[in-house]
Amino acid sequence: MDQSLSLPGKIWILFSTFFRIGTFTIGGGYAMLPLIEREFVTNRKWVTQEEMIDILAIVQSLPGIIAVNASIFIGYEVGGILGAVIATIGLLISPIFIITGFAYLYINVQDMEVLQGLFVGVRSGVTALILLAGIRLGKKVLKGGFAWAVAAASLIAVAVFDVHAGLMILSAAVLGFVIYGLILRGRMS
């Protein structure tokens, strides 16, 4: 973690970064992964790649909205409870005002072809961005047969058998605890 910044400096960066993430993320959840990764892992180095993966796992296993949970988690790590609140406010300002506009103007988006194009365009681009982020994080994590097997099993469970992502993470947690915490305990230390 960067120690050179004062707390107000960090809080401001949290606010402005999550403001950008909230403004440019359409579709929520995983769509903001590439942005968070670029800002906090690559540029600021406040979060390591492993921590990024851990945060993704934790925020999905808890109730609530993934993007909001991520802003609270990162905000808390950087600036305590104030950081958590400010990061979340930053994330939600743009969406709240944009939605307010739509709600009061009674715009019927389903009739707007331009918006449909924007929607599909952004989704297509975001698909590429998540793919690249997944490859970068995967390189870090997928070392050895066990890791590949767990990754493949979780993809198949969620995509084919409709298993809830939270349940998948819980199963992997139990598996990790049994294998690394109990069976291979001696080898880890």
């Binding site: 959840g29 995983y30 992964l33 492993e50 993966i53 851990d54 993704l56 796992a57 999905q60 698909t127 998540i130 793919l131 982020a133 997944g134 994080l137 995967g138 994590v141 997928l142 066990f146 890791a147 590949w148 097997a149 767990v150 990754a151 493949a152 099993a153 979780s154 993809l155 198949i156 469970a157 969620v158 995509a159 992502a165 998948m168 993470i169 199963s171 992997a172 947690a173 139990v174 598996l175 990790g176 605890f177 294998i179 690394y180 915490g181 305990r185 880890m188």
Partner: peptide, 19 residues
């Protein structure tokens, strides 16, 4: 630490699903 070691590859699978 051991729980996280189990979870991390599962998250990669979930990212693949998100793609």
């Amino acid at each position: 630490q051991s729980i996280l070691k189990g979870i991390r590859p599962a998250v990669i699978g979930l990212i693949a699903y998100a793609v």
